[in-house]
């Protein structure tokens, strides 16, 4: 049992410390998107017509993503290839993070980096399709919904000087992080 725990722990460690973000994303036409995903969007976002659809893959995981503006916020809704909803991500400001989570996240940055800056924050809702629908069209917040914060940040410490994407839970605890690879800048520099 101890061995398994050690292996599991090491595995988690490797997820937290060794992952890199290398997603490929492309624009797709609405007709290429699974019907059930379009249905869900129609139910939740009602009359919203300006939705941009994307297909993305990181090599193993494949997903469809709908991007739209809703009540002045940028929403990204992720579906799996069968059209089942995976999560909703909404772009937010730093001050929209709940106070206790914000403090914990701040503490994480202070303790782990000598220099850091937050580039982008998305609040991520995961859960049952109906609950997620209520969140959008009824503004109803079901307790079963999982809330995480996905934060893209620049962080420098003794070991690393990178752009990261970190996933924090609703209490501000870091769940995982990965390096965001910045594309070559040779054509911008020379």
């Amino acid at each position: 049992m101890k061995n398994i725990t050690t292996i599991l722990l090491l595995f988690c460690f490797s997820i937290v410390f060794a992952q890199e973000k290398n997603e490929v994303e492309k624009r797709v036409k609405k007709k290429q998107v699974p019907e059930s995903a379009k249905e869900w969007m129609k139910d939740a976002y009602e009359k919203k017509s300006r939705v941009k659809w994307y297909f993305q893959t990181d090599g193993t995981k494949k997903a469809y993503e709908a991007k739209l503006f809703w009540k002045n916020n940028k929403h990204s809704v992720e579906f799996d290839t069968s059209g089942e909803i995976v999560n909703i991500e909404i772009l937010i400001d730093q001050n929209e993070i709940k106070t206790h989570a914000k403090q914990k996240i701040q503490q994480y940055f202070d303790e782990n980096y000598s220099k850091f800056s937050i580039k982008k924050i998305q609040i991520q809702y995961t859960g049952d399709g109906d609950d997620l629908e209520d969140l959008i069209d009824e503004d109803e917040h079901d307790e079963d919904l999982t809330i995480n914060y996905e934060i893209e940040f620049y962080g420098k410490n003794e070991d690393a000087d990178e752009l990261w994407e970190g996933l924090f839970d609703q209490d501000g605890k870091l769940l995982e992080k990965r390096i965001v690879n910045i594309k070559a800048t040779d054509n911008l520099d020379y």
Binding site: K26, R27, Y54
Partner: peptide, 10 residues
């Protein structure tokens, strides 16, 4: 540098 297909350049 502005991608012509989607929001990221792949």
């Amino acid at each position: 540098q502005i991608p012509l297909n989607g929001v990221s350049l792949d």
